[in-house]
């Protein structure tokens, strides 16, 4: 079966400038994301998640190992993924709609089609009124909605979301999670989702991969079998609380475990 993403035996080390030998960031990282699957990657900060994204996005080359997107090896190739970074990263001199159009045309859509899609979907998520506004007038949550829409509409086999709600306040974050959940459950795109938040990962994902601290490797894989569509009601589910505690134990720093 063709996977949206396949990562096999990925190693990455950087040359240390202070001659302490190469610094290992990723060690033998292997996982896959099936078509239409939502997979979260959770791990302590500084565990090489950004590096992993740069490798998948083709900005950097792995020391060894293979990356396949949609069945094809894409090492060092850019333009195979839809991407949503932690900061909304909207061009301040482009209107909301023009920002979406820019991303879609870079992803290969024809200009008129991109414009049509942008307007249609902005209306659908209730942001139609902001189409001709400039991003700085939008709240952080609204900017992230635009940023997510931009990734959702890009016709790519894989969506990579890099801690997309990390910079939002707790309340906005909760709203965004359920909002994203409802949109995604409709579209069923293949997603790689990086987060720090255990609840967030549990609420959204089909599967959770737990990364160790540097040098990072995958220490645990957890199936999240709650039926969809899901809602916040899940938070009080005993099974949810149990998994939360298990994950919390895994992510505790080594000193705290003793």
């Amino acid at each position: 079966m063709k996977h949206a993403l396949e990562v096999n035996g990925l190693h990455k080390s950087f040359a240390d400038t202070r001659s302490r030998g190469p610094q290992q960031v990723l060690v033998d990282v292997s996982f896959h994301i099936a078509e239409g699957e939502f997979v979260s990657l959770i791990g302590p900060s500084g565990s090489g998640k950004t590096t992993l994204f740069h490798l998948i996005g083709g900005l950097e080359l792995p020391t060894s190992g293979d990356i396949r997107i949609d069945g094809r090896s894409t090492i060092g190739e850019q333009g195979h993924i839809a991407y949503m970074p932690q900061q909304a990263s909207l061009m301040p001199w482009l209107t909301v709609s023009a920002n979406i159009e820019l991303a879609l045309t870079i992803s290969g859509l024809e200009k008129r089609h991109a414009r049509q899609l942008a307007i249609e979907w902005l209306n659908r998520i209730g942001l139609g009124g902001t189409a001709n506004q400039f991003p700085h007038l939008l709240s952080g949550g609204m900017q992230q909605r635009v940023s997510f829409l931009r990734a959702l509409l890009s016709p790519k086999p894989l969506m990579c979301l890099d801690e997309p709600f990390g910079a939002l306040d707790a309340l906005t974050r909760m709203h965004m999670q359920t909002w994203l959940l409802s949109l995604w459950e409709e579209a069923k795109r293949s997603v790689l989702f990086v987060t720090h938040s255990i609840e967030e990962a549990l609420l959204l994902s089909d599967r959770i991969l737990v990364l160790s601290s540097a040098p990072a490797t995958i220490v645990r894989e957890i199936e999240v079998a709650f039926p969809r569509p899901r809602s916040e009601a899940l938070w009080s589910d005993p099974a949810f609380v149990g998994m939360k505690q298990e994950l919390y134990g895994l992510l505790k720093p080594a000193e705290a475990r003793r």
Binding site: Q78, P85, S154
Partner: peptide, 26 residues
């Protein structure tokens, strides 16, 4: 972060120039 974003979604060097570097140098 804008450079990083555009590169991640596969913008060419030319696109990067016209759509990001030039407007931000105004």
């Amino acid at each position: 972060k804008l450079v990083n974003y555009l590169r991640m979604i596969g913008a060419s060097k030319r696109k990067l120039f016209w759509r990001l570097e030039l407007p931000s140098s105004v």
